[in-house]
Design a protein around this nucleic acid. Sequence first.
DNA 1: GAAGATGTTGACCGCATGGTCAATAGTGGG
DNA 2: CCCACTATTGACCATGCGGTCAACATCTTC
Lengths: 208, 208
Amino acid sequence: MPHTSDHPSTSARRRRTPDERREEIVEAATAVVAEVGYANATLTEITRRAGVSKGLLWHYFSDRDEVMQHAVGHLAGRLRAALVSDVDVSAPVPDVVRAVFARTALFTRTHRQELRALDEIVHNLRTSEGRRRVTLLDYEDVYADHVALLGRGQRDGTIRAGDLRTFAVGYQALIDGMIAHLQAHPDADPLTYADGVAELFLHGAASR
Amino acid sequence: MPHTSDHPSTSARRRRTPDERREEIVEAATAVVAEVGYANATLTEITRRAGVSKGLLWHYFSDRDEVMQHAVGHLAGRLRAALVSDVDVSAPVPDVVRAVFARTALFTRTHRQELRALDEIVHNLRTSEGRRRVTLLDYEDVYADHVALLGRGQRDGTIRAGDLRTFAVGYQALIDGMIAHLQAHPDADPLTYADGVAELFLHGAASR
DNA sequence: GAAGATGTTGACCGCATGGTCAATAGTGGG
DNA sequence: CCCACTATTGACCATGCGGTCAACATCTTC
């Protein structure tokens, strides 16, 4: 057993694998960005937060942009996975819609920091020419999911006729708006709010 | 007539008043922010764009933050004024809603740059402690307008019963989502899209 | 037209930040 | 136990930025 030390206590823990280190740094970046904003999120502060010397960051990432890009990937992956794993997409469409709103609303209470950081980074990550690196165009696959879901609803009669893309974009807009609103109002009850918005959308998109 | 020169040509134009200068600088800031993003919008570049020496900026503004705050005020004021002046709020509620969506959609085609800059600055302006200076809480007066409008609709029977605040927040979310979507898709037809979203909302919130 | 006030300039500074690097500690294989 | 290799450190550097300032230009007023 070549383990150096097994107690996972204070400072003398076992050496991390490269992936663990990368993740530690990326998570520190997330935390710092969420707290002070993208522009003020210093690499020095990020390494400090990760409990790591400054130079090490460049052993794992080539520049600030790369750190942030990894952070986006990490965050988006975690959020999406948690959502998908928790909603039964084969249920009746209105139920799925309600569940998505509800789950997303709860997310704002359990993943406040991550959502803040994600928003922050997405809004600020740029290419070297100054254009946004992540745009709404990257929503396309999300829209595709929505279109598929709502299309099924149209076929089984739970969603009224109408342009699916408009529905999908409206659906996503309500989700994003709900997230922003709940983030800004930490005291609001997420579930009652989610219900309200879900009903608004379903009344708008449902047959009858 | 102590005018130095009357021809409004190339470089030797008449001296600007303080307000004009401030506005020139603020507008240059808007343009630069829209192009390269908040973080990369250098004060040097802003003054260059305004056709003014670097030091002059500090004659009119005390620091970068103040420039950006003025820019927010300037932008929000112009956008709001143009919207309000163009929509007859005493018309039947559904007509008002449709008009707002339509006018806003057209805005994304006539004020692309300004909307970009506004979004950019709002997302990045911070207090010295790192918290956002402009948050969704500043939407409160906008929500108040929406609540008033939709409340009138409930009283005259064009809007169905339901929590007005939820309606208002959903309404604004659809507007913001539409703006973002049209900004990301410059080729989409704004009016047909606006109609679609308006109908989605009205189906959701209307009586019947 | 002198004098004071105001507008304008560009050179300059301090500093924080992203990024580099030579040196050291730790790890694993033979 | 040694050697090669990787992880890790912290001092260091270059740069670009926000911000200052003394000098100069221009207007206003009497």
